[in-house]
């Protein structure tokens, strides 16, 4: 295969991985605060449809992205009110959020299905984008791709270096202790959940405006769930989320180039790869219960209420 093909594979891997990075980093922060939100898929779908609708009608993708983030935050607030304030079961509520998001997005987006949109353009960075090979490899993506890398550094810094991040992690490990020494457990958890919502929202908008610039019902096709699996796979470490997302991006684009490699497998089987890969990596990581026990935030999935 030619150099151009390899460049194309690399580029589409990065492009396919980007929504996973947003969604998984958002969920990572949520989970670090001790909250398991299984509604990523639903928030992504709502973000996708809202980002698309606002983008088409306003003609501005930036507005679309802002609206998608807001939509994700609103969705996550429903989850937050139910689980943090009303003490509902996190697993059940997350599932409800996903089912609700799928229904809501299909309902709202009905008349927009199949309509085209001017998708996100590649940024043109003077000089850098024009470099031979390197320019094509690294400097011809759309803005959200660079945003995902920036988000990684921000999350990494926040969790490991900032005071607020330290507090958030403490709350995820031991909410009662944190409460006793005066940390605002509920407020921090709300913020973490909302951050996750915003990230899922923009991940969804990326799907409908950049990856495939149109709205299709259920277009996230399990990426929200794969993002959840990525967080486990990454043992709750941001850098591994980033690497894991690129791994999955690679698996996803493999199907596009399989014929180039001389593979003649029915396309359905190639499309199964990301899902099968998710199961395989989960098995590899979870095989040793200690890996999970040592890394998983201790209060993950358990509610906490100062009154109770």
């Amino acid at each position: 295969m030619s150099l151009d093909t390899w460049i194309a594979i690399f580029v589409s891997t990065v492009v396919a991985a980007t929504p996973l990075i947003y969604a998984a980093l958002g969920e990572l922060v949520t989970e670090k605060a001790g909250v398991l939100n299984l509604g990523v898929e639903g928030m992504m779908l709502v973000g996708a449809v809202v980002g698309f609708i606002v983008g088409v009608n306003s003609g501005s993708l930036v507005l679309g992205y802002l609206a998608a983030m807001l939509a994700g935050v609103l969705m996550s607030l429903v989850f937050g009110v139910l689980t943090i304030t009303l003490q509902a079961n996190q697993v059940a509520t997350g599932l409800a959020l996903t089912l609700f998001g799928a229904g809501l997005s299909a309902f709202v987006g009905r008349s927009y299905a199949g309509q085209p949109i001017d998708g996100a353009d590649a940024l043109h960075i003077p000089l850098l984008s024009d470099l031979p090979v390197v320019g094509a490899l690294l400097f011809q993506f759309n803005a959200l791709v660079y945003g995902s890398i920036a988000l990684f550094f921000a999350v990494q810094w926040f969790l490991s270096r900032s005071h607020a991040g330290l507090r958030l992690r403490a709350i995820g490990e031991a909410p009662s202790v944190s409460h006793a020494i005066g940390h605002p457990v509920q407020k921090t958890r709300y913020r973490a959940v909302m951050f996750g919502g915003a990230c899922s929202g923009i991940a969804g908008a990326y799907l409908s405006t950049a990856l495939t610039p149109m709205w299709v019902e259920g277009m996230s096709s399990g990426r929200g769930w794969i993002a959840l699996a990525l967080v486990v796979f990454a043992t709750w470490k941001p850098l591994r989320v980033l690497l894991g997302a690129y791994l999955f991006g690679g698996v996803t684009v493999l199907q596009l180039y399989a014929q180039g490699f001389g593979l003649t497998v029915p396309s359905e089987f190639l499309s199964m790869l990301p899902y099968a890969a998710t199961i395989v990596v989960l098995v590899i990581i979870c095989r040793d219960p200690k890996t999970i026990l040592l890394n998983q935030p201790a209060s993950l999935g358990k509610g906490f209420h100062p009154d109770a």
């Binding site: 429903v78 139910l82 509902a88 409800a96 089912l99 609700f100 229904g103 299909a106 309902f107």
Partner: peptide
């Protein structure tokens, strides 16, 4: 759109959890 069914289903579960 018949997707309204999914919307109602989701609402039902939310209200139940609340």
């Amino acid at each position: 759109p018949s997707a309204i069914t999914g919307l109602f289903q989701g609402l039902l579960l939310f209200f139940l959890l609340a």
